[in-house]
């Protein structure tokens, strides 16, 4: 018992760092999101008119692409934190993984919902069981599974190990999502930003998209730090209460 309490002892250095970083990440998130939203939704040109172009529906891109990018990035963070917890027994690993996965679940849900709205108009279908969509749906369920496991036990340490293993096994899904558009026939358009020939998107749209992606990233780091603080406070409260009971 004392060893387990010791593992959560004194995360003071992390908390100090979190407190110092949070105002900056929050301010950067607000600035990037404001610029990206106004530029992308109000100023950037629409796509070419249908049928060859996508008209005004391309504006969905400014929330769909950052959400999808974050859904993958947050999962990589959950997996890295889980690896730190399980391999190096880093005391913050479980805390950071647990704090991040609800945020990732929100991004995965937004990716699916905004993509569905976009597809409904451009493909004439709200949903198709193709590789890209299905693998993102699996990512969403991986997040839900991770959240469920971390909350399944009264003692957080018990669910934590199972959650770590789920998170690490699920990493195999990340390259599947990324390359699904190359490996299988799909309605989803192929990679159009990071590719060998350079971005396929007009610079007028790429610039606001860049701000949105930065904004989403800083938003994630802000909420992550905040949720990690809450988790650490809850753990410390729990440890103090246990010590009170023991004495």
């Amino acid at each position: 018992m004392s060893a387990r309490l010791h593992a959560f002892a004194n995360p003071a250095r992390f908390l100090r760092l979190a407190r110092r970083l949070l105002p900056w990440t929050a301010a950067l998130a607000a600035i990037c999101l404001a610029i990206g939203a106004v530029w992308g939704i109000g100023i950037a040109p629409p796509g070419k008119p249908p049928p060859e172009g996508q008209g005004e529906t391309v504006r969905i891109m400014y929330v769909h692409v950052p959400s999808a990018w974050m859904a993958l990035f947050v999962y990589a963070c959950v997996a890295a934190a889980s690896a730190a917890a399980i391999i190096w027994r880093h005391p913050l690993g479980h805390v950071l993984a647990r704090a991040a996965s609800p945020i990732g679940a929100c991004f995965a849900l937004l990716t699916l919902a905004t993509g569905s709205l976009w597809g409904a108009k451009m493909w004439g279908a709200w949903w198709v069981w193709d590789a890209r969509l299905t693998s993102v749906l699996i990512l969403f369920f991986l997040y839900l599974g991770h959240i469920a496991l971390t909350h399944a036990f009264d003692d957080p340490a018990r669910g934590a190990r199972a959650a770590c293993i789920l998170a690490l096994v699920g990493v195999v899904n990340l390259p599947i999502i990324k390359f699904s558009v190359d490996w299988w026939n799909t309605l989803h358009q192929p990679a159009s930003i990071i590719r060998r020939e350079g971005p396929a998107i007009d610079a007028q749209m790429l610039a606001p998209l860049f701000f949105m992606i930065c904004g989403f990233t800083f938003y994630f780091f802000s909420v992550w730090l905040l949720r990690a603080r809450a988790e650490l406070a809850a753990l410390r409260t729990r440890a103090l209460k246990l010590r009170l009971l023991a004495s």
């Binding site: 629409p46 005004e56 529906t57 945020i103 937004l110 919902a113 709205l117 976009w118 809450a230």
Partner: peptide, 29 residues
């Protein structure tokens, strides 16, 4: 451009989900 029924729900839902998550996280912390 006639796509209001698709574009605005996508943008609005994103704003809503991110706002609710932020507020819930702040209050919980």
């Amino acid at each position: 451009g006639g796509y209001a029924a698709y574009v605005w729900p996508a943008l609005g839902l994103t704003a809503l989900v991110l706002a609710v998550l932020l507020i819930a996280s702040v209050r919980n912390a």
